[in-house]
Design a protein around this nucleic acid. Structure first.
Length: 639
RNA sequence: CGGGCCGUAGCGUAGCCUGGUAGCGCGCUUGCAUGGGGUGCAAGAGGUCGUGAGUUCGAAUCUCACCGGCCCGACCA
């Protein structure tokens, strides 16, 4: 009886990195590899797949599709699926397939490098959160809408009770108590902690593949500083790191001023990738460089030195039977232009009604109501409005003395632009009647003026007065200066050198990693497929072996693959028994930046071919020079 | 949550209006040919027609309910 069994992988494949390995197993013992081919050590930024890095297509898994799934609407989503990068489990939930995961790894590694360079420190926090953390935090009411409950799924073994756990949509409520208990001295500040991990948000309407998913990968960082100046420094440091990161992954992202939304905080920038399919609108000025999310954007429409118009006469009621829209008041016989109408909207904020007044021609920007300080607000229903104002929507107004029950109002807030009206028209708070000759200063009791309207393209830039433009964009990153909103709630304080305690000043910083992957595709593709930037390509070199049965061709493919690998590239060898046309189509679809074609026809001529995915021309390399030329091409792209 | 559309093989779809053998393309399997841009020929496998109830001699098809999906809007750190 032989003490050892030796065996080979079957079927034998001369290209497989394992094929040189010899395995010996003593009976009753564990399998041990006792000899392996000499292999290069993993280099920085490489994805290790020991032994060796090179992958054979036939032994990897890249399920490409000719047709797009019916639910994919935008190009990047179609390509994600067609190139075999992701597969859908259900709405907003995706499996990262092996090829897609390699891209994710490349992106996270670059992100990690930039974060580390900027002085941030990586950690890993739980994604199942005790609900108490959220209830203690400042935004439970608003955030719970998008949070998944993480209750047990047991059937009666545990006592039913309120949710104890939720899945983390972000981690302020976790990091802040952690820092509170671990950091108490100014000597330990500033600190910036980050993680690259999964986030859970129960989006009302997941869309566009990874663009808005229920579960997605995000880099989130949280900075803690002793004072406001420090927090601003941390913020600037992160903003710079973001710019470096997006440049390295090959994304043209621009930083724009943004609304702070539910996050709260004092100021923030979003990193936007211009794309027609984006969810956000960016308003920008080519002259001054001003750019802002539409939610936040302002314009120079209302001059700072505006003088109110002289009242032309007393307020006067007139009958408007059946008129309940701005448009019908604009029409004959009334003919009141939208910019001479007051639009009166009623909201409910923290259970109290409040009024917002705009020009008839303007749209409310709901995000801007966040500045009013309500924890939660929503449009009021007609049933709620009538007892307060005395009329149904369509005949509402805020003229002094016409409001039925002014005492219950939490306030009357007006957009600055209504001061442009002068002798305007508004509802009389009596169904079927309006008022004319209404003037802001004389007739309205405004609690506070503010910027509540949506800026339209063409309005003057707030900085230079040139016409503003707008375009769609995808948000891929967001930096917030948070202030002390969370540290106060969680009592995250430190002691300074005067033995005084202060709340830490925080910032938070997110990058949508999975969204970034899709944004890159959206920004970098052609009719045939993806064009991966070198830095994030799942493989950088694809050796297209057209005759895998031919030992000489296979040998050449392996040699060139190894040369590319030695030069620093991740290499995939297409060794499938497919026709050339299929291989070329797949190569274009999955978008590997450099393609080396090894085929019988070329070898007869004594050449192999080198083609860049983003260029048309094919370079013929004489076989004798091929290894060196391939290495050269790789090095030239390594950066 | 409102409005619209759709569930038929792994994927993309026809058939439904007008009830009577479930069809096509891609993909998959086998064979032969082919071998540099999704090749050709031939032979196959693969379907609770979303679920349930009803109408009917008979339902993918008509009716009702439910479930799921997609789009528009609302919403969206």
């Amino acid at each position: 009886m032989a003490p050892f069994l030796a065996f080979q992988l079957s079927p034998p494949n001369p290209l497989h990195p394992f094929h040189l390995c010899e395995f010996k197993v003593a009976r009753g013992q564990r399998l041990q590899r006792i000899a392996a081919p000499a292999l290069p050590l993993p280099s920085r930024g490489r994805i290790a797949s020991v032994p060796g890095f090179m992958k054979l297509w036939s032994q990897f898994f890249i399920p490409t599709l000719k047709e797009s799934p019916a639910d994919a609407e935008i190009t990047s989503h179609k390509l994600l699926v067609r190139a075999g990068l992701v597969r859908k489990l259900t709405g907003g939930l995706y499996t990262y397939m092996p090829l897609g995961l390699r891209v994710i790894h490349k992106i996270t590694e670059l992100c990690r490098q930039e974060m580390d360079k900027a002085g941030a420190i990586e950690l890993w926090m739980p994604h199942v959160h005790p609900v108490e953390n959220w209830m203690q935090g400042p935004r439970w009411e608003a955030a719970r809408e998008i949070m998944f409950r993480a209750d047990h799924a047991g059937a009666g073994k545990r006592a039913p009770r309120d949710p104890e756990f939720v899945l983390g949509p972000t981690h302020e409520e976790i990091i802040t108590p952690l820092v509170k208990s671990e950091i108490t001295s100014y000597r330990d500040l500033p600190k910036n902690f980050y993680q690259i991990a999964t986030k859970f948000r129960n989006e009302i309407r997941p869309r566009y593949g990874l663009m808005r998913a229920r579960e997605f990968i995000m880099k989130d960082a949280y900075s803690f500083d002793a004072d406001d100046a420090g927090a601003t420094r941390s913020y600037q440091l992160m903003k710079a790191a973001y710019e470096a990161f997006f440049a390295r992954v090959g994304l043209k992202a621009i930083a724009v001023e943004a609304d702070t939304g539910v996050m709260g905080g004092s100021f923030s920038h979003e990193f936007m990738v211009p794309a027609e399919v984006g969810d956000d609108d960016v308003v920008y000025c080519e002259e001054s460089g001003y750019s802002a999310n539409r939610e936040k954007a302002t314009s120079g429409l209302v001059p700072a030195d505006l003088k109110d118009a002289e009242p032309a006469g007393a307020v006067e009621k007139f009958a408007t039977p059946g008129v309940v829209t701005i448009a019908s008041l604009e029409a004959a016989p009334y003919s009141v232009p939208g910019d001479k109408q007051f639009k009166t909207l009623v909201f409910v904020g923290d259970d109290k009604p409040f009024i917002v007044i705009l020009r008839g021609c303007d749209e409310l920007e709901e995000a801007k109501l966040g500045s009013l300080g309500f924890k939660l607000f929503r449009p009021a229903t007609p049933e709620e409005i009538e007892p307060v104002l005395g009329a149904k929507p369509g005949s509402l107004g805020a003229v002094k003395g016409t409001i039925k029950n002014p005492a219950v109002l939490a306030g009357i807030f007006a957009d600055h632009a209504i001061r442009l009206i002068g002798n305007g028209v508004t509802g009389a708070n009596e169904d079927g009647f309006h008022l004319r000759n209404v003037n802001v200063a004389r007739d309205l009791a405004i609690t506070r003026f503010g910027d509540f309207r949506t800026v339209k393209a063409g309005e003057p830039c707030p900085k230079c007065g040139a016409p503003l433009k707008s375009r769609r964009a995808i948000e891929v990153g967001h930096v917030f200066k948070l202030g002390t909103k969370y540290s106060e709630k969680f009592n995250a304080v430190y002691t300074d050198d005067q033995k005084q305690t202060h709340p830490m000043v925080m910032g938070c910083y997110g990058i949508g990693i999975s969204r970034t992957m899709q944004a890159i595709i959206e920004q970098s593709h052609d009719a045939d497929g993806i064009l991966w930037p070198w830095s994030v390509a799942p493989f950088q070199v694809l050796v297209c072996l057209l005759d895998p049965q031919d030992p000489a061709a296979s040998e050449m493919a392996k040699k060139l693959g190894a040369a590319a690998e030695r030069a620093g590239a991740d290499v995939l060898i297409d060794d499938r028994a497919e026709r050339p046309g299929v291989k070329f189509k797949d190569a274009d679809l999955i978008g590997i930046p450099l393609r080396i074609t090894v085929g019988g026809r070329g070898l007869k001529e004594g050449v192999v071919e080198l083609k860049a995915r983003d260029q048309k021309d094919v370079v013929k390399l004489p076989v004798a020079e091929a290894e060196a030329r391939v290495a050269e091409a790789v090095v030239a792209r390594m950066g």
